[in-house]
Every structure is written in structure tokens, then in C-alpha cells.
Amino acid sequence: MSRQYSGKSLFSSRIICGDCGSFFDSKVWNSTSKYRRVIWQRNEKFKGEHKCETPHLDEETVKAEFVDAFNAILTDKDSLLEDCRLMQSALTDCSGIDTEIGQLLEEIDVVTELTKRCIAENSKTAQNQEEYTARYNGFVERYEKAKARGEELRSTKAARDAQADATGAFMFEVQELNPLTEFDEKLWLTVIDMVTVHADGRITFKFQGGTEINV
């Protein structure tokens, strides 16, 4: 699956193909005439054996459909905001992660001390080197396993924090706004997580709060 994309447009890295998952990229049609138009299509639409059936989109269509999708989520603003609050609360509750990270830090300290003792004993007294190497490698494996798991948990926690922040920004925008009458670039950049284009022409807008609207 290709997830490479190019371009600096506000639509870059936000529109994907519902068939293969590749990002859509921009292409200019009739660039030198009055009929000039910017369209978006799958990066590798015409490459390889697999031919995706997802249609291309022009920018005006994306903007108009976004306005409709955003207005749709405002129809039940209170329920939406409550769902977002619950999600944000769940995301920020990292007590389980923090507990496991603490246990891993203790494991690292213990293994570090055991490794030092192992090395010290080997330098002071004659030992079977195969047994020493096996014991030493076992400590190293435990250390690396605990370290990798700790990094994984910290990455997970950071991602949850970022999602909680994005959800908070989304809630703020929803709470403050009335239905849109035209496309708002700042709002798009704040509230949209991903837009999926399907082969049947449907477009799914996934908002930062997790809500999905099909248009």
C-alpha cells in the first residue's frame, strides 16, 4: 500500500482511496486555459496491475461536501459533545500505562544491577564462559525487551495525548459554530482527520472527535 504524497495543499495527506488506502494527490487539468481545474485522484491510479475504481474529485466538490458533512454533525450538537467528552476522558486516563511503565523501569534497574554483578563475578573468578555468556545474554535480552516495551507505551501515551488534544480542539469548534454557509479553511484543518473516497462515489468524512459522516 502506498501512502506517499506530495504537494502543499490543505487537502494533501487527508484524502485517501477507499479501495487501496493510498493518498489522493492533486493534478491540474487545462492548466493554460480558462477551464483550468484542480482535481484530486489516487497517487498511483494508473500504475500497476490493480486499477482502483474510486473517482477523482475537484476541489470545489470536496469543499461543498465538507460543508454538508460538518453541518450534519451539528444537528445533534449536545450528544456529539458528550460523546467527545467521554472519548477525551478515556484517552487521558493513562493510569494503566503509567503503572506498567513504572514496573518496566523497576525491571530495567534490577536487570542492570544483575548484569553488573554478572560481569564483576566473571572478572574476579574463573567461570565456564559458555554459561557466563548465556547468563549475560539473558540479562541483555530482558533489558532490551523491557526498554522496547517502555518505548512502545510512551509512544502510545503520546499518541493518546495528541488525539485528546485534537478532540478538544474539535469540541471547541463545534461548540462555538453555527451551521456553515461556505467552506472554512481553518476549520477544515482543525476538525478533519481523514476523508475516504469510495468506488461508488460516496465520501466519508472522519472528524477528529471520531465521528464519521457519509455524503
Rank of each mutant, 00 (worst) to 15 (best):
Q208T: 01
V62N: 01
N122L: 02
L177F: 02
S31Q: 15
T32M: 07
L153G: 04
F24T: 08
F183D: 07
T54P: 02
Q88R: 12
D165A: 13
K157L: 06
G102H: 09
S9V: 04
G96W: 03
S2I: 14
K77G: 02
M194D: 01
S9A: 08
R142S: 10
G48E: 10
R14S: 07
K45T: 03
F23S: 04
T99A: 13
D165Y: 08
D200M: 11
E100N: 11
K63P: 07
M171W: 09
E100F: 09
W29E: 11
A158I: 01
T75R: 01
V174M: 09
T75K: 03
L187D: 05
T32C: 04
T190P: 03
C84L: 10
E44H: 12
E151M: 07
A64D: 15
A159M: 09
F207P: 02
P55K: 06
R3N: 13
S26Q: 10
T112G: 15
M171A: 14
P55H: 07
A199C: 09
G21F: 04
T112Q: 12
K147D: 08
C20P: 09
D184T: 06
I16V: 15
G210I: 10
E185I: 00
N43Y: 08
E65Q: 14
Y35F: 11
S6E: 09
L187Y: 09
A120V: 10
N137Y: 05
A199T: 10
I203R: 07
S2T: 15
D58L: 06
F139I: 02
R36P: 01
R154F: 02
E130F: 14
